[in-house]
Design a protein around this nucleic acid. Structure first.
Lengths: 336, 336
DNA sequence: CTGAAAGCGCTTACAG
DNA sequence: CTGAAAGCGCTTACAG
């Protein structure tokens, strides 16, 4: 087993100096630094994480917490992409990722692992249910953290998000400009901020056009295909001209339900999704949808958290990544 | 910060005794044990992982390594389910999960983190590319590990797998019994053992029926929908009566391609998948497919690895989980 | 069955 | 700029 001591010996310096070199302490003579670095490189030395953690309190490990109260968690391509982004940023910055799929029945265990084991330097919370019982204690710990998706009320909480509200408003506005009037929405879960914001965007668009907002035309669903399918059953009797859905998975189920009812898209009903998942362009017809940069969101969350860890006491970070409306064949084009 | 010392003080024993209680050492008087446990419970004490690791060499953390040479990694529902299984077992057994999506360009970094940082007690390797450069050094380290998917040559390597070969053979046999003769296959990647085994199963079925095995009817593809779509382009000119695909994602793409060519399933071409993914039953027509227990595979891998960690030197584990052919509408029924 | 003590491999004031 | 030394919070022979 290689240790600092060994390197020190080979480089003819003390353990302290080797440690300084490893931790980029400026107080090292350039020649000395070079010599030590060469030895380290040569025998491919890696300092022991546990020891560093014990002595210095840092581990270069990030926690990634996914509350599993959400059902659709892994049927949707969202989370895999998010994880990929987090992992990729960590690779670049030489951090590692600890993953907690936090099942409600293991809440205490998760809390103690995340907060009290001193094994991570900070954590990312993904897709938080707004009233998730895990949230409060996690936020009250004294570890740096960042949310994926803004916090509904507390402005001191750092987050990365997209502008769900405006993105949804623009998508619905596009439907309105295309001539659709009786527009329904299959909203996402209203205990998730993304779901709330997208619904609010839908409402904003109708307001902007001075159109009434019928409650019956709003159906809540989880982010799944089945949810979309069932929601359409409720909407069809109301004869909507178009449907804005809160995710592509929902849109997929909606499309199937519409077809099963003998109707077609976009001739009978216009359809718009959210995400621009890989399958959106391959649907028949291809889905008009809001593209959001999911992998990028994960990367930015990790990068920002690491920056927060390395600059303690800095102001809360609030980052909004851009979205883009991708026009495809699932709704007709704007008319004059 | 709570420490052993604090507990010792409150329970009127030494640090050593508290440590023994925590680690289930039998050499503790029952009354003493109870007293210590009560104190621990009462103030919700959690031992410091880094310190335990340093002193004792154990962390109760498992590594989960996913080599990212595979393209389709996260478009397929396979991995999310696998992760869920691993995570769930770890929750139950009070372990944590460290995740490495091992990008090839960070191979050295991954190796040193997994093998040399002493941060994990063992690791699971998922979906290994058979000649992945990561594999050899990982296996040569001295940490316990287990593969998801058997090792093609080394019988000393522990693994969890399904019997891909027999499952595929049974699926193709079902097509044969249904009257199909000219059967093609869209095989998975031939640098992954699962892809190889499923193709071998296809061949075995044809042999069993004394049918020739035409190379042209075998098209290799990655486990993606697009791969399936493209593979069908090559197969259609050869007019196969049925296609056995190595995954449901492939089957999804194949179905789309068949429909785009103006043909229908099962009337013109029979189709069988592999996985029984959540979408298989919802396809039009519903997909006949081999169901494999993906989440269970992850759970068993984690449980087995933990058992290996806790019983060093035990014999290699080779676990085969059962599959099941799920008959749906994508191929016609057996004829007399 | 229990405790005193050494030691795991680092980091970091402290002194020079 | 550098080194000697204390200390991070545990585990585990060792002695009794």
């Amino acid at each position: 087993m290689l240790t600092l001591e060994k390197i020190a010996q080979l480089a003819q310096v003390s353990r302290s100096t080797v440690s300084r070199v490893i931790n980029d302490d400026p107080n090292v003579n350039d020649k000395t630094r070079l010599r030590v670095q060469q030895v380290i490189e040569q025998i491919n030395f890696q300092p022991n994480t546990a020891a560093r953690s014990l002595a210095g309190g840092r581990t270069r490990i990030l926690g990634f917490v996914i509350p599993m109260g959400v059902s659709a968690l892994f049927s949707d391509p969202y989370f895999p992409l998010l994880i990929q982004g987090v992992s990729s940023a960590c690779n670049t910055l030489d951090y590692s990722v600890m993953l907690w799929l936090a099942e409600p029945e293991y809440e205490r265990r998760t809390l103690r692992q995340v907060l009290h084991n001193r094994i991570i330097d900070g954590f990312i919370i993904a897709s938080m249910i707004m009233d998730d019982p895990l949230l409060k204690p996690l936020m009250e710990g004294n570890l740096p953290y960042i949310l994926i998706g803004r916090h509904p009320t507390n402005p001191d909480v750092s987050y990365v998000d997209v502008d769900n509200q405006n993105a949804a408003r623009d998508a619905v506005s596009y439907l309105l400009r295309s001539g659709y009037r009786r527009i329904a929405t299959i909203a996402g879960p209203q205990n998730m901020i993304g779901g709330v914001d997208r619904l609010e965007g839908y409402r904003a668009a109708l307001r902007q056009w001075n159109l009434p907002c019928e409650d019956a035309l709003i159906v809540e669903s989880d982010f799944t295909e089945d949810g979309g399918y069932q929601a359409v059953q409720k909407l069809l009797p109301l004869q909507p001209e178009a449907i804005f859905t809160a995710s592509d998975s929902i849109a997929l189920g909606a499309l199937r339900a519409i077809k099963d009812a003998g109707l077609s898209v976009p001739e009978d009903i216009g359809l718009v999704g959210f995400d621009d998942s890989s399958f959106a362009a391959r649907m028949t017809p291809p889905l008009t949808t809001v593209r959001q940069p999911i992998t990028k969101t994960g990367m930015v969350a990790a990068e920002t958290l690491i920056d927060m860890i390395e600059h303690p006491g800095s102001a809360p970070r609030r980052l909004i990544l851009p979205t883009e409306l991708v026009i495809r064949g699932s709704c007709s084009s704007p008319r004059k």
